[in-house]
Simulated scan of single mutants.
Amino acid sequence: MAGHSKWANIKHKKGRADAARGKLFSKLAKDITVAAREGGGDADMNITLRTCIQKAREANMPADNIDRAVKKGTGELGGAALEETLYEGYAQGGVGLLVHVLTDNRNRSASEVRSTFTRNGGNLAESGAVSHMFQRKGQILVDGGDVEEDRLMNIVLEAGAEDMKREGDQFEIITDPVDFSTVCEALEQQGVRPDTASVTMLPDVPLKIDDREQAAGLIRFVEELEDLDDVQNVYGAFDIDDDVLEALSEQDA
């Protein structure tokens, strides 16, 4: 699973830029609504909701917006029902992509996702064609300067984590989705605050990308998908070479 903490961190940093474009609050609100719908509106009893609310607060989302999103999920406020869909497809070069959508208009989201794939030289695939390349896992990223490695290892393994490794300046913790909440709560109790924590889709064998032009095009494609209002997350079966990633980051700085 090497490299996925880097990609997750890129998306985390990108999220802060999205706020300036007015899109992040909508995506965060949808996450909160779904978390409240599936696990209840009490954040003390619903770790997924608590994590979503924490992300929203870090993005300076107004408290009223958060409250409304929770109440939509619990049914206290009306609103269009959100449907969850997973689109599967390929970018140029055969790179597998999963596109997670939450929408109140399935036809609109399908049209937007399809046109984005076409515009970027990709193509959609049938259900199951790409998703079998991924596993659903909990992924937690912790700043390497915030906690000593042995202490962190003891905390997460005792709580049921599957693996922990250092990726650059971060620790990447992988869990079974069933154990994700337990590991998050263990970190919280020990005063360790993750940079990001989510249940995500991780590829079994990511395609190594060491060509700068291909990497740049792939990142642009993923960003276009993520900028669609109905798209919550994009998961890619690729791992961009460290040197290429660093060069692209400096180019965009």
Rank of each mutant, 00 (worst) to 15 (best):
D44M: 02
I47H: 07
G144K: 06
R136P: 05
L102W: 08
V142F: 03
I10R: 13
G41F: 00
D239L: 12
A81P: 06
D143Y: 03
R119T: 15
G40Y: 02
C52G: 04
N120F: 08
E167P: 07
A81L: 09
A81F: 13
E223Q: 08
Y235P: 06
V205H: 05
S109T: 15
E226H: 04
K55E: 15
R136L: 01
L157W: 00
K55L: 13
A237C: 08
T85F: 12
V147G: 05
A110C: 07
L77Q: 08
L28Q: 09
M164V: 15
P203T: 09
R114G: 06
D204N: 03
K55M: 13
R21A: 14
L157N: 01
I53Q: 11
A80G: 11
R68G: 02
A215Y: 07
N154M: 05
S181E: 14
K208A: 13
R220V: 07
K137G: 01
R114W: 07
E84M: 04
Q92N: 11
D211M: 12
Q170G: 01
G3A: 05
R50I: 00
V222Q: 06
A2Y: 02
T51M: 10
E188M: 09
Q139I: 12
G128F: 13
R21G: 07
M133N: 14
N233M: 12
L202Q: 14
E83M: 07
G78Y: 12
N46I: 07
K55H: 14
D210M: 10
V192C: 07
